[in-house]
Simulated assay, not measured.
Amino acid sequence: MKVVAELSRKALYKNAHVDISLIEWQERNNGYLERHRNATERVAEPEELKREKQSKRKTLESFIRNLESCDILKEFDERIWIAAIDKVTVQQDGALVFIFKDGIEIGK
């Protein structure tokens, strides 16, 4: 995005000091705007993914705190397991990935 901003700044300077046709200026400027839009989208995707993961993490931490504060659950309960876990995947390295019914994944 910095590169595109610098190119745009230079184009503005050139347009102010060199005779350039309006059509050429618009084509060049539209190209810079498109590059900036693409760069902005590429930056936004990981940020959205990060927000989603943070939200899932907070939900899971809250769920765990609630379970820990319950005196009822003192040992493994198959009914709770079945109600909460959708599936468990064993990775090639032996790591387990737990997928809850609400889509939250732990272990990735």
Rank of each mutant, 00 (worst) to 15 (best):
A5R: 12
L7F: 03
L7Q: 06
S8C: 05
R9C: 04
R9L: 09
R9M: 06
A11N: 10
A11T: 10
K14T: 10
A16I: 09
H17Q: 06
H17S: 07
H17P: 00
V18E: 08
I20Y: 08
S21A: 09
S21K: 08
S21C: 11
I23K: 01
I23L: 15
E24A: 12
E24H: 14
E24I: 00
W25D: 13
W25P: 02
Q26P: 04
N30C: 01
N30R: 14
G31L: 07
G31S: 12
L33E: 12
L33K: 10
E34I: 12
E34F: 14
E34V: 04
R35S: 15
H36A: 06
R37D: 07
R37L: 10
T40M: 15
E41W: 01
R42H: 03
V43Y: 02
A44T: 00
E45M: 01
P46Q: 04
E47M: 08
E48P: 00
R51T: 02
R51I: 02
R51H: 02
E52K: 09
K53A: 03
Q54G: 03
Q54Y: 03
Q54M: 13
K56T: 01
K58V: 06
L60G: 04
L60S: 04
S62L: 05
S62R: 10
F63V: 05
I64S: 05
R65K: 13
L67D: 03
E68L: 14
E68K: 15
S69Q: 15
D71K: 11
D71P: 06
L73D: 03
